[in-house]
């Protein structure tokens, strides 16, 4: 398997929680009055779990992810990441975020982009210790030999690989991904799905993955959190009891199609 630096936490017991939400409500002040983006969300995510999140537009998937990342304040309820408030987990570099845009610095080389998390944040109390060597991450995302390239010299898929490598450099306990492959074509998206599963198994990190795509949600997740809109609330949590490692051929199997069909039915009522 991967190098020791990437090995999963050895003592990640079953009752180890990476994330716990209790009655989380998020409201926004808009021009048209108070908007409830999330209402009374309660959820537990085991350490090392892969949870995908699916729902119609405006159901608050991204809002939920941003709440966990301490990018948005909650209006009610509590968020606890690795047993502490989200802001503390953020400063301890236990939370990483991968956006739909790769959000690379266009003037930095691939390797400098990956190392950005080591360069900033100390003034605000960030704790940065024993990072994964950037070269190792580069090999893991399949970009060995491109360390000096600038982002504009890479394809969209490659840029997103760099963003994933950057997100992993500080051994995050929880990786939040907001439609990271949403802007890619289907072939690249499939390829990156397979690679993401491999990276997940190598690193043992917890992943929360927001997507619009039913096949992607089923293919990646151990569970799918389905949200309904107006206001955003939990509609159903669906277990995907298909064994890993999963490969793309799985998508043509009846057990896969059956689960996807179930999600589609639930989604229609969201």
């Amino acid at each position: 398997m991967g190098a020791p630096a990437l090995a999963p936490a050895a003592n990640a017991g079953a009752d180890d929680l990476a994330l716990r939400l209790d009655g989380v409500t998020v409201t926004f002040d808009t021009d048209h009055g108070l908007l409830t983006a999330l209402q009374d969300i309660s959820l537990s995510v085991r350490s090392g779990e892969f949870l995908t999140m699916l729902g119609p537009s405006g159901c608050g998937k991204s809002t939920l992810l941003r709440t966990v990342a301490d990018l948005l304040p909650v209006s009610g309820g509590t968020v606890s990441v690795i047993g502490r408030p989200a802001s503390e987990a953020r400063r301890a570099r236990q939370i990483s975020f991968v956006f739909q845009d790769a959000t690379l610095m266009p003037w930095l080389s691939v390797i400098d982009n990956i190392r950005l998390p080591l360069e900033v944040g100390r003034g605000n109390g960030a704790i940065i210790e024993a990072p994964v060597p950037a070269e190792e991450l580069l090999a893991m995302v399949g970009l060995k030999g491109r360390e000096r390239a600038l982002p504009h010299e890479l394809s969209g898929g490659m840029r997103q690989r760099v963003a994933i490598a950057r997100a992993l450099i500080c051994h995050p306990k929880i990786l939040l991904m907001d439609e990271p492959f949403g802007a890619l074509d289907e072939i690249k998206r499939d390829q990156l799905n397979v690679e993401l599963l491999r990276i997940w198994q190598e690193t043992g990190t917890t992943i929360l993955f927001v997507t619009h795509s039913i096949p992607e949600a089923v293919f990646l997740g151990q569970r799918v959190l389905m949200l309904a809109a107006n206001p955003g609330r939990v509609r159903e949590v669906v277990d995907i009891d298909l064994p890993y490692p999963r490969d793309l051929a799985l998508r043509d199997q009846p057990e896969f199609i059956e689960r996807a069909a179930h999600l589609r039915q639930v989604l229609e009522t969201c």
């Binding site: 941003r66 990342a69 301490d70 990018l71 953020r90 400063r91 939370i95 990483s96 975020f97 956006f99 739909q100 845009d101 959000t103 610095m105 950005l116 998390p117 360069e119 900033v120 944040g121 003034g123 605000n124 109390g125 960030a126």
Partner: peptide, 19 residues
């Protein structure tokens, strides 16, 4: 999203300005 990234990295306003 880049500003959000810098927030998740706990970057200061000075770091956001310079970097």
């Amino acid at each position: 999203a880049t500003l959000e990234l810098m927030h998740v990295l706990s970057a200061s306003r000075w770091e956001v300005l310079m970097r």
